[in-house]
Simulated assay, not measured.
Amino acid sequence: MDFQPTQDQRDLRAGVRELLARRYGREALRAAVDTVAAAGVDRELWRELGEAGFFALRLPEAAGGVGLGLAEAVLVFEEAGRVLLPGPLVATHLAAGTVPGAAQGTAVVTAFDLGGSLVAHLGEADAVLGSAQPPAALLRTGEPVRSADPLTPLHRVPAPAPASADGRGGAGRPAAQVAPYRDEGALLTAALQLGSALRTLELAVRHAREREQFGQPIGAFQAVKHLCAGMLVRAETARAAVYAAAVTADPAEIAGAKLLADEAAVGNARDCLQVHGGMGFTWEADVHLHLKRAWLRAEQWRTAGEAEEVLAADLLATAGA
Protein backbone atom coordinates (compact mmCIF):
# COMPACT_ATOMS: atom_id res chain seq x y z
CA MET A 1 0.00 0.00 0.00
CA ASP A 2 1.38 3.41 -1.00
CA PHE A 3 1.00 6.10 1.67
CA GLN A 4 2.84 8.79 -0.33
CA PRO A 5 0.79 11.93 -1.17
CA THR A 6 -0.84 11.83 -4.59
CA GLN A 7 -0.06 14.44 -7.23
CA ASP A 8 -3.35 16.21 -6.43
CA GLN A 9 -2.42 16.31 -2.74
CA ARG A 10 1.04 17.68 -3.54
CA ASP A 11 -0.53 20.34 -5.76
CA LEU A 12 -2.92 21.27 -2.95
CA ARG A 13 -0.04 21.64 -0.51
CA ALA A 14 1.97 23.70 -2.99
CA GLY A 15 -1.00 26.00 -3.61
CA VAL A 16 -1.52 26.64 0.10
CA ARG A 17 2.20 27.22 0.61
CA GLU A 18 2.20 29.76 -2.22
CA LEU A 19 -0.85 31.55 -0.79
CA LEU A 20 0.64 31.75 2.70
CA ALA A 21 4.05 32.86 1.39
CA ARG A 22 2.34 35.69 -0.46
CA ARG A 23 -0.03 36.73 2.32
CA TYR A 24 1.71 35.72 5.54
CA GLY A 25 5.44 35.61 5.00
CA ARG A 26 8.08 36.42 7.59
CA GLU A 27 7.57 40.18 7.27
CA ALA A 28 3.86 39.83 8.08
CA LEU A 29 4.66 37.55 11.01
CA ARG A 30 7.18 39.99 12.47
CA ALA A 31 4.84 42.93 11.90
CA ALA A 32 2.11 41.12 13.83
CA VAL A 33 4.49 40.31 16.69
CA ASP A 34 5.94 43.81 16.92
CA THR A 35 2.58 45.59 16.73
CA VAL A 36 0.35 44.73 19.68
CA ALA A 37 -2.79 45.92 17.88
CA ALA A 38 -2.05 43.53 15.02
CA ALA A 39 -1.73 40.47 17.24
CA GLY A 40 -4.71 38.37 16.33
CA VAL A 41 -6.86 37.42 13.38
CA ASP A 42 -6.36 39.15 10.04
CA ARG A 43 -9.96 39.19 8.80
CA GLU A 44 -8.98 39.83 5.19
CA LEU A 45 -6.60 36.87 5.19
CA TRP A 46 -9.25 34.78 6.98
CA ARG A 47 -11.67 35.49 4.12
CA GLU A 48 -8.98 34.61 1.57
CA LEU A 49 -8.45 31.30 3.33
CA GLY A 50 -12.18 30.71 3.19
CA GLU A 51 -12.29 31.49 -0.54
CA ALA A 52 -9.40 29.06 -1.07
CA GLY A 53 -11.39 26.31 0.65
CA PHE A 54 -9.23 26.10 3.78
CA PHE A 55 -12.21 25.85 6.15
CA ALA A 56 -14.66 24.10 3.81
CA LEU A 57 -12.09 21.54 2.68
CA ARG A 58 -13.95 18.55 4.16
CA LEU A 59 -17.51 19.73 3.54
CA PRO A 60 -19.32 17.80 0.78
CA GLU A 61 -19.48 19.53 -2.57
CA ALA A 62 -23.27 19.49 -2.33
CA ALA A 63 -22.95 21.68 0.78
CA GLY A 64 -20.61 24.13 -0.93
CA GLY A 65 -17.41 22.47 0.25
CA VAL A 66 -14.40 21.00 -1.50
CA GLY A 67 -15.29 17.39 -0.70
CA LEU A 68 -11.85 16.22 0.44
CA GLY A 69 -10.82 14.30 3.57
CA LEU A 70 -8.62 14.32 6.64
CA ALA A 71 -5.51 13.44 4.66
CA GLU A 72 -5.82 16.62 2.60
CA ALA A 73 -6.70 18.70 5.67
CA VAL A 74 -3.55 17.52 7.41
CA LEU A 75 -1.39 18.68 4.50
CA VAL A 76 -3.07 22.09 4.50
CA PHE A 77 -2.72 22.56 8.26
CA GLU A 78 0.91 21.48 8.11
CA GLU A 79 1.57 24.47 5.83
CA ALA A 80 -0.23 26.80 8.24
CA GLY A 81 1.96 25.49 11.05
CA ARG A 82 5.13 26.22 9.07
CA VAL A 83 4.38 29.95 8.94
CA LEU A 84 2.87 30.18 12.44
CA LEU A 85 -0.42 31.46 11.05
CA PRO A 86 -2.34 32.79 14.07
CA GLY A 87 -6.00 32.39 14.88
CA PRO A 88 -8.39 29.56 15.82
CA LEU A 89 -7.85 27.69 12.56
CA VAL A 90 -8.85 24.28 13.89
CA ALA A 91 -12.07 25.42 15.58
CA THR A 92 -13.21 27.41 12.53
CA HIS A 93 -12.47 24.45 10.26
CA LEU A 94 -14.44 22.10 12.52
CA ALA A 95 -17.35 24.56 12.65
CA ALA A 96 -17.58 24.89 8.85
CA GLY A 97 -20.72 22.76 8.65
CA THR A 98 -22.57 24.22 11.63
CA VAL A 99 -21.66 27.89 12.14
CA PRO A 100 -22.81 30.31 9.42
CA GLY A 101 -19.86 32.01 7.74
CA ALA A 102 -17.21 29.65 9.10
CA ALA A 103 -16.79 27.78 5.82
CA GLN A 104 -16.44 31.03 3.86
CA GLY A 105 -14.02 32.60 6.33
CA THR A 106 -16.40 35.43 7.16
CA ALA A 107 -16.79 34.14 10.72
CA VAL A 108 -14.07 33.35 13.27
CA VAL A 109 -14.89 30.44 15.58
CA THR A 110 -12.95 29.55 18.71
CA ALA A 111 -13.36 26.67 21.18
CA PHE A 112 -12.71 25.52 24.74
CA ASP A 113 -9.81 23.42 23.46
CA LEU A 114 -7.27 24.31 26.16
CA GLY A 115 -9.00 22.47 28.98
CA GLY A 116 -10.59 24.11 31.99
CA SER A 117 -12.09 27.47 31.10
CA LEU A 118 -9.42 29.02 28.87
CA VAL A 119 -10.37 30.31 25.42
CA ALA A 120 -8.02 31.64 22.76
CA HIS A 121 -8.96 34.59 20.50
CA LEU A 122 -12.24 35.09 22.34
CA GLY A 123 -12.22 38.84 21.75
CA GLU A 124 -12.00 38.32 17.99
CA ALA A 125 -14.39 35.38 17.68
CA ASP A 126 -17.93 35.43 16.29
CA ALA A 127 -18.87 32.11 17.90
CA VAL A 128 -17.58 29.46 20.31
CA LEU A 129 -17.74 25.88 19.06
CA GLY A 130 -20.39 23.91 20.94
CA SER A 131 -21.45 26.84 23.14
CA ALA A 132 -24.88 28.43 23.24
CA GLN A 133 -23.42 31.71 24.52
CA PRO A 134 -21.94 34.31 22.16
CA PRO A 135 -18.35 35.46 22.71
CA ALA A 136 -19.51 38.91 23.86
CA ALA A 137 -21.42 37.37 26.77
CA LEU A 138 -18.40 35.29 27.78
CA LEU A 139 -16.13 38.32 27.59
CA ARG A 140 -18.28 40.23 30.08
CA THR A 141 -17.70 37.57 32.73
CA GLY A 142 -14.15 36.64 31.76
CA GLU A 143 -10.70 38.05 32.31
CA PRO A 144 -7.61 38.19 30.09
CA VAL A 145 -4.80 35.77 30.87
CA ARG A 146 -1.15 36.33 30.02
CA SER A 147 -0.21 34.07 27.09
CA ALA A 148 3.21 32.64 26.35
CA ASP A 149 2.52 33.15 22.64
CA PRO A 150 2.33 36.85 21.70
CA LEU A 151 -0.07 36.03 18.83
CA THR A 152 -2.55 33.98 20.85
CA PRO A 153 -4.56 36.11 23.31
CA LEU A 154 -6.23 34.10 26.07
CA HIS A 155 -9.26 34.63 28.31
CA ARG A 156 -10.48 32.69 31.33
CA VAL A 157 -14.27 32.55 31.54
CA PRO A 158 -16.84 30.65 33.63
CA ALA A 159 -17.94 27.36 32.12
CA PRO A 160 -20.77 28.20 29.68
CA ALA A 161 -23.71 26.05 28.68
CA PRO A 162 -23.38 23.88 25.56
CA ALA A 163 -25.76 24.29 22.68
CA SER A 164 -28.75 21.95 22.76
CA ALA A 165 -31.07 20.62 20.09
CA ASP A 166 -33.78 23.19 20.93
CA GLY A 167 -31.25 26.02 20.91
CA ARG A 168 -31.80 26.92 24.58
CA GLY A 169 -28.58 25.42 25.91
CA GLY A 170 -28.09 23.57 29.16
CA ALA A 171 -25.63 22.71 31.88
CA GLY A 172 -22.26 21.31 30.94
CA ARG A 173 -18.50 21.59 31.18
CA PRO A 174 -16.19 23.04 28.53
CA ALA A 175 -14.66 19.59 28.01
CA ALA A 176 -18.06 18.19 27.05
CA GLN A 177 -18.57 20.91 24.43
CA VAL A 178 -15.49 19.93 22.41
CA ALA A 179 -15.74 16.16 23.03
CA PRO A 180 -17.36 15.41 19.64
CA TYR A 181 -14.52 17.26 17.90
CA ARG A 182 -11.62 16.18 20.08
CA ASP A 183 -10.06 13.53 17.81
CA GLU A 184 -10.20 15.62 14.65
CA GLY A 185 -9.09 18.71 16.55
CA ALA A 186 -6.13 16.83 18.01
CA LEU A 187 -5.07 15.53 14.60
CA LEU A 188 -5.27 18.94 12.91
CA THR A 189 -3.33 20.50 15.79
CA ALA A 190 -0.73 17.74 15.40
CA ALA A 191 -0.44 18.77 11.74
CA LEU A 192 0.20 22.37 12.83
CA GLN A 193 2.89 21.11 15.22
CA LEU A 194 4.42 19.02 12.44
CA GLY A 195 4.68 22.06 10.18
CA SER A 196 6.43 24.01 12.93
CA ALA A 197 8.84 21.12 13.62
CA LEU A 198 9.78 20.91 9.95
CA ARG A 199 10.26 24.67 9.74
CA THR A 200 12.57 24.86 12.77
CA LEU A 201 14.57 21.99 11.28
CA GLU A 202 15.01 24.07 8.12
CA LEU A 203 16.01 27.14 10.14
CA ALA A 204 18.59 25.17 12.11
CA VAL A 205 20.15 23.55 9.03
CA ARG A 206 20.31 26.85 7.17
CA HIS A 207 21.98 28.59 10.11
CA ALA A 208 24.42 25.70 10.55
CA ARG A 209 25.48 26.06 6.92
CA GLU A 210 25.81 29.85 6.98
CA ARG A 211 27.27 30.58 10.42
CA GLU A 212 31.04 30.14 10.59
CA GLN A 213 33.33 29.61 13.57
CA PHE A 214 37.04 28.79 13.51
CA GLY A 215 37.06 29.16 9.73
CA GLN A 216 34.29 26.70 8.88
CA PRO A 217 30.49 26.40 9.04
CA ILE A 218 29.28 25.33 12.48
CA GLY A 219 27.42 22.50 10.74
CA ALA A 220 30.78 20.79 10.30
CA PHE A 221 31.04 20.27 14.07
CA GLN A 222 29.81 16.95 15.40
CA ALA A 223 27.71 18.42 18.21
CA VAL A 224 25.72 20.55 15.75
CA LYS A 225 25.35 17.61 13.35
CA HIS A 226 23.89 15.52 16.14
CA LEU A 227 21.37 18.23 17.05
CA CYS A 228 20.20 18.55 13.44
CA ALA A 229 20.05 14.78 12.98
CA GLY A 230 17.92 14.44 16.09
CA MET A 231 15.59 17.14 14.81
CA LEU A 232 15.20 15.30 11.50
CA VAL A 233 14.36 12.02 13.25
CA ARG A 234 11.73 13.71 15.44
CA ALA A 235 10.11 15.50 12.52
CA GLU A 236 10.00 12.46 10.21
CA THR A 237 8.69 10.19 12.96
CA ALA A 238 5.92 12.69 13.69
CA ARG A 239 5.20 13.09 9.98
CA ALA A 240 4.71 9.33 9.55
CA ALA A 241 2.40 9.17 12.57
CA VAL A 242 0.32 12.19 11.54
CA TYR A 243 -0.09 11.03 7.94
CA ALA A 244 -1.02 7.50 9.03
CA ALA A 245 -3.58 8.77 11.55
CA ALA A 246 -5.10 10.96 8.82
CA VAL A 247 -5.65 7.83 6.71
CA THR A 248 -7.02 5.58 9.44
CA ALA A 249 -8.76 8.21 11.65
CA ASP A 250 -8.23 5.76 14.53
CA PRO A 251 -8.50 7.53 17.93
CA ALA A 252 -5.46 5.72 19.35
CA GLU A 253 -3.35 6.54 16.31
CA ILE A 254 -4.49 10.17 16.50
CA ALA A 255 -3.47 10.26 20.17
CA GLY A 256 -0.05 8.87 19.26
CA ALA A 257 0.32 11.36 16.41
CA LYS A 258 -0.51 14.29 18.71
CA LEU A 259 1.98 13.04 21.29
CA LEU A 260 4.79 12.67 18.75
CA ALA A 261 4.01 15.95 16.98
CA ASP A 262 4.02 17.88 20.26
CA GLU A 263 7.38 16.37 21.17
CA ALA A 264 8.75 17.17 17.71
CA ALA A 265 7.57 20.79 17.73
CA VAL A 266 8.83 21.58 21.23
CA GLY A 267 12.02 19.53 20.94
CA ASN A 268 12.95 20.90 17.53
CA ALA A 269 12.35 24.49 18.60
CA ARG A 270 14.60 23.96 21.62
CA ASP A 271 17.36 22.38 19.54
CA CYS A 272 17.00 25.04 16.84
CA LEU A 273 17.57 27.61 19.54
CA GLN A 274 20.73 25.77 20.61
CA VAL A 275 22.04 25.69 17.03
CA HIS A 276 21.52 29.46 16.82
CA GLY A 277 23.41 29.96 20.10
CA GLY A 278 23.02 33.29 21.88
CA MET A 279 21.32 34.77 18.83
CA GLY A 280 18.49 32.27 19.22
CA PHE A 281 17.44 33.82 22.52
CA THR A 282 16.86 37.26 21.01
CA TRP A 283 13.48 38.76 20.15
CA GLU A 284 14.63 39.34 16.56
CA ALA A 285 15.03 35.62 15.86
CA ASP A 286 11.93 33.58 14.96
CA VAL A 287 12.92 30.55 17.02
CA HIS A 288 11.24 31.71 20.22
CA LEU A 289 7.94 32.21 18.36
CA HIS A 290 7.93 28.57 17.27
CA LEU A 291 8.75 27.40 20.79
CA LYS A 292 6.02 29.49 22.41
CA ARG A 293 3.40 28.40 19.90
CA ALA A 294 4.47 24.77 20.33
CA TRP A 295 4.04 25.03 24.10
CA LEU A 296 0.52 26.38 23.62
CA ARG A 297 -0.53 23.82 21.00
CA ALA A 298 0.73 21.01 23.22
CA GLU A 299 -2.11 21.93 25.59
CA GLN A 300 -4.79 22.14 22.90
CA TRP A 301 -7.41 19.47 22.16
CA ARG A 302 -5.40 16.66 23.78
CA THR A 303 -2.49 17.02 26.21
CA ALA A 304 0.37 14.54 26.49
CA GLY A 305 -1.20 12.99 29.58
CA GLU A 306 -4.57 12.60 27.86
CA ALA A 307 -2.95 11.08 24.77
CA GLU A 308 -1.07 8.59 26.93
CA GLU A 309 -4.32 7.58 28.63
CA VAL A 310 -5.97 6.93 25.24
CA LEU A 311 -3.01 4.84 24.12
CA ALA A 312 -2.93 2.89 27.39
CA ALA A 313 -6.66 2.14 27.15
CA ASP A 314 -6.23 0.95 23.57
CA LEU A 315 -3.33 -1.33 24.53
CA LEU A 316 -5.32 -2.82 27.41
CA ALA A 317 -8.33 -3.40 25.17
CA THR A 318 -6.14 -5.07 22.56
CA ALA A 319 -4.45 -7.26 25.17
CA GLY A 320 -7.82 -8.35 26.56
CA ALA A 321 -9.33 -9.12 23.18
Rank of each mutant, 00 (worst) to 15 (best):
V108Q: 10
V108I: 09
V108W: 04
V108E: 06
V109W: 00
V109L: 04
V109E: 05
V109C: 06
V109S: 00
A111R: 06
A111K: 03
A111E: 02
A111H: 07
F112T: 06
F112D: 00
F112K: 09
F112C: 09
F112A: 09
D113W: 11
D113M: 13
D113E: 15
L114A: 10
L114P: 00
L114H: 10
G115D: 10
G115K: 07
G115I: 07
G116E: 06
G116L: 09
G116N: 02
G116F: 03
S117E: 14
S117L: 04
S117F: 03
S117T: 15
S117R: 12
S117A: 12
L118W: 04
L118N: 01
L118S: 01
L118G: 00
V119S: 05
V119Q: 02
V119M: 01
V119E: 09
V119T: 03
V119K: 01
V119G: 01
V119W: 03
H121C: 01
H121W: 13
H121I: 06
L122P: 04
L122Y: 11
L122H: 09
L122R: 03
L122F: 04
L122K: 02
G123S: 10
G123C: 05
E124T: 08
E124M: 02
E124K: 11
E124Y: 10
A125S: 12
A125G: 02
A125D: 09
A125K: 01
D126V: 07
D126Q: 01
D126Y: 05
D126T: 07
D126L: 04
A127P: 05
A127W: 00
A127C: 09
V128F: 03
V128K: 08
V128Q: 09
V128P: 09
L129M: 02
L129I: 06
G130V: 04
G130T: 04
G130H: 08
G130Q: 07
S131Y: 11
S131D: 13
S131H: 08
S131Q: 12
S131I: 06
A132T: 12
A132Q: 10
A132M: 04
A132K: 07
A132F: 01
A132W: 04
Q133C: 11
Q133E: 15
P134F: 14
P134T: 15
P134G: 14
P134Y: 15
P134A: 15
P135G: 13
P135S: 13
P135F: 12
A136F: 13
A136R: 15
A137G: 05
A137K: 08
A137M: 13
A137I: 03
A137F: 11
